[in-house]
Design a protein around this nucleic acid. Sequence first.
DNA 1: GTCCTAGATTTGATCGATCAAATTACATAC
DNA 2: GTATGTAATTTGATCGATCAAATCTAGGAC
Lengths: 362, 362
Amino acid sequence: MSDPERATLASVARQARVSRQTVSNVLNAPERVRPATRERVLAVIDRQDYRPHQAARQLRTRRSRVIGLRIEPVRDGVNGVVLDRFLHALTATAQDAGYRIMLFTAADDAAEVRAYDELISTLDTDAFVLTSTHHGDERTAWLRDHRVPFVTFGRPWGAENQHSWVDVDGAAGTRAAVEHLVALGHRRIAFVGWPRGSGVGDDRWAGWRDGLAAHSLPARGLDVQVLDGIEPGRRAAAQLLGGSTTATTPGARRAAGQPTGFVCASDSLALGVLAELQHRGLRPGTDAAVIGFDDTPASAVIGLSSVTQPIAEVAVACVLQLRPLLDSDPDSNPDRDPTDRARQLLLPPVLAVRTSSAAPPP
Amino acid sequence: MSDPERATLASVARQARVSRQTVSNVLNAPERVRPATRERVLAVIDRQDYRPHQAARQLRTRRSRVIGLRIEPVRDGVNGVVLDRFLHALTATAQDAGYRIMLFTAADDAAEVRAYDELISTLDTDAFVLTSTHHGDERTAWLRDHRVPFVTFGRPWGAENQHSWVDVDGAAGTRAAVEHLVALGHRRIAFVGWPRGSGVGDDRWAGWRDGLAAHSLPARGLDVQVLDGIEPGRRAAAQLLGGSTTATTPGARRAAGQPTGFVCASDSLALGVLAELQHRGLRPGTDAAVIGFDDTPASAVIGLSSVTQPIAEVAVACVLQLRPLLDSDPDSNPDRDPTDRARQLLLPPVLAVRTSSAAPPP
DNA sequence: GTCCTAGATTTGATCGATCAAATTACATAC
DNA sequence: GTATGTAATTTGATCGATCAAATCTAGGAC
């Protein structure tokens, strides 16, 4: 790490027989420099292996080329990997665009806002990517008020075009799941979801409802609301399948109005449903079809069909959405309404069909 | 983001009627400042909500208080979550120590070394955390040669005390697994592992071997080597259980010398073993016990016992190991042999017992 | 009262880039 | 040949901190 003599703008300028500013221009505004000079300077830059020092640049420009991202504790191990893949794709995309991802943690939203303030004033962090937005999010309000570029992975359920966001069309996902089951021959298709009120949950529920409606299939009594998790999913399945835990004939089950297909709001719930089926001696994929949501690794492992979020595409889109916000000079152009530059993008998920939804209903 | 007048050392100094340097000392070397002055300055700092500008500091000190971490693409979804938890713990610990985690990606080791060079010269990155080390790792050699502080999660299989590292004692984990099975009454305990040559794999294998030896149990013919993955694990189990795929009586299986316990080098392999058991009509946990390694979410989901790596502790230890390297001034103290400050730490894993290894052998 | 020393504080230079404004070079027009 | 305007390049100031050295203060020894 001991540099005998580190290459700087000045050292390059000296050897190339031009001024510092010209070297700077070669890198930041090449069109201003005559081609011949440019070549000469570039050659010296190469020879000296010169790399601009970010801190010096930042001191002047107040830009760090850093994007902040809060990493949350892994609550539910099952859903954790989505973040993992997202992080990698985001880092790669940002890197290609000349930005880096810096992580931070915060105990709650208020702490996160304090972290923004800190990161902006001490590190000149250029932008933020938020991952789990919710109703009346104080974070987005703060960022908007302070004119900080940001994009959210997830819609701001409510005020849709207040800021840039990227999201996955959950309704399209559950609807595709229904379509797939209908195509297989299923007629009684249940939905195991979360309590009303969460934007994400309601969205996925709506896709199921619309899917059934499109085929004039019944929805009544086929809709259970539970908290996320494997055990809740199991109880939901138990409720849908009725009291008797002993396996009966397909005919009897059909007569009792039991569902043959289960569309779930998460893989955790779907895993619970699978457990309950197994507990009753019903074979997933044969006696009943189950489809989860998020395509977590566990689902691939046990052959659970699942709605796959295009995580890498989301990450790419996030960086893309940030570009116009980052490029615009915040000072020279007052830009009264930051909403102007806000972009929204809704990506369709893809259904990964596995053994848990391979066969027609019994 | 438009600051009417941002607080700086100078603005604080002015209002506190002291010089810039004194304000700087209050923050960086409080003992040099008389208590009365210190109080006065701190009050002004508070009133102006002053926060030191990192870029300015960095320009002078050449220290960024940033730790770099390469994030690799998620190859195997099953093992991905370990990284996820590690990242969070690392970010939190580093943050408490006044450091931030910056992510980057690289296609291969050579590219990673190039990234180091870039990150050091442009961002003054203070240290790196490496996650998957291997035999003759060019990255650690480069970092050592360039006197860059770093710590690895994983032993440098071979030259053990060349640099700081933190690792989990895999042998202790598989040994604990064996002990657990022996305590349940198992006598024929197989090991499903990877081909010889990988440090991690051999280590886990050794724990199994030693565990059996401690109880004078046979190991012969109970050791299969396959690549990682569910399907290879399944084939390994098939091999260990013999040709016949039809379920036989416990007595017949015992007579045939079939194992009743399976210790695996990864959860993926364990999942394969589970699949093969199920395929043969054998109930995991009842007809045979299975134990995986890494405690990925999938294992909790399906009740697979698994050796749990204390990821959060590893992260805390990584930051702890870096401290002495970071605190030492690289220039003033030539520190001929960086090995001096290297610390090693081997953490014991914990066995998470679940239904797949709950019962005594049939 | 003077001298000395350690402690407290200040001064001026510096890190390496960009900005804004000034200067020079060069082609075209008259 | 001079004027004129644009393109190319240079100059000096500046961002906000720390470093190294200088200066000031206060207390004790003699």
